[in-house]
Amino acid sequence: MEQKIEKSTRVEPSTPIKKRRKISKDQMVAVGFISPSIILILIFVYGFIGWTGWVSVSNWNTLVPDFSFAGLKNYIYLFNDYRFQADLRNTVFFTILFIGLVIIMGLGLSILIDQKLKGESIFRNIFLFPMALSFVVTGVVWQWLLNPSTGFNQFLSVFGIQPKWYTDTNIIGGFEWGSIEFGLPVAIIAVVIAAVWQMTGFSLAMYLAGLRGIPEELREAARMDGGSEFQIYRRIVLPMLMPITVSVVIIMAHISLKIFDLIYAMTGSGANFVTDVPGVYMFETTFRGNYYANGSAIAIIMLLLVAVFIVPYLITNRRGDK
């Protein structure tokens, strides 16, 4: 540890010699406080990412560890695998629907709440409350609400509709793609409903904060210039909410790409894997089938998928800082 401290104090050539001691003392304290968490993160996050990557190119597919190099065998297996192809399809549609609906509903609700209505805080809390629940709780509740024989269907049967919700195995607009049928699985809609119900409050809070940050003078000025309310939202409010939207998309994307608990509690893999996601497959293949290398490969693929969203965000953020 002390070596590290020395090293970091040395890297500051431009500071005047007189001030040096003072600053280095400050920095020593700072580094002292930061280093435990840095070391822990290095080991328990980056170290294990590296370890997972290593396992994913090994032959460890039984209970007996086998670290011989397998190349990309496990990855090739996965991309030819029916279940994994289905998982990718489900993830794509889940992510698109989930992010889209969370943004639309969050924005809509926040604009409504922003209309200076009475009891605003009550509404805000009502919409935010689902977020306090765990995804497991949400999953169990919605499993019964959307159960084809017990839930909403009891009510809907009055109108003669009986959707099969998450047990529906149909694929909308399906066409052959690899070994699976590519299209929107009807069953995933049920899962999206539950996820949107839970996360809309979050985007609502974000947008509400954004709306409050837009100075009233801007709107006032636009009104003076004869802009209609719709134009004000279209030309002023929405563009100014752009940074919020980016944040919401990033946060929702990383939730939806890694989703596990909601699906696991609510539907499981589903008939014909219509509600399966990489997280569930990873868990089952690793800890039930003992395919450790395959499971690690899934983990790495999930990491890369999330990185597609996160990395550009981090890069633009860094540029912004400079």
Binding site: L128, M131, A132, S134, F135, V136, F202, A205, A209, I251, H254, I255, K258, F260, D261, Y264, A265, G279, M282, F283, T286, F287
Partner: peptide, 27 residues
Amino acid sequence: SIFLLMVLALVIAACSSDSSSDGEDNT
């Protein structure tokens, strides 16, 4: 804004517990 901060903290807590429980038994 304090309220919003608390919400964010909640979300972050929820996210981190998500990832740590991935490998364990969830139900």
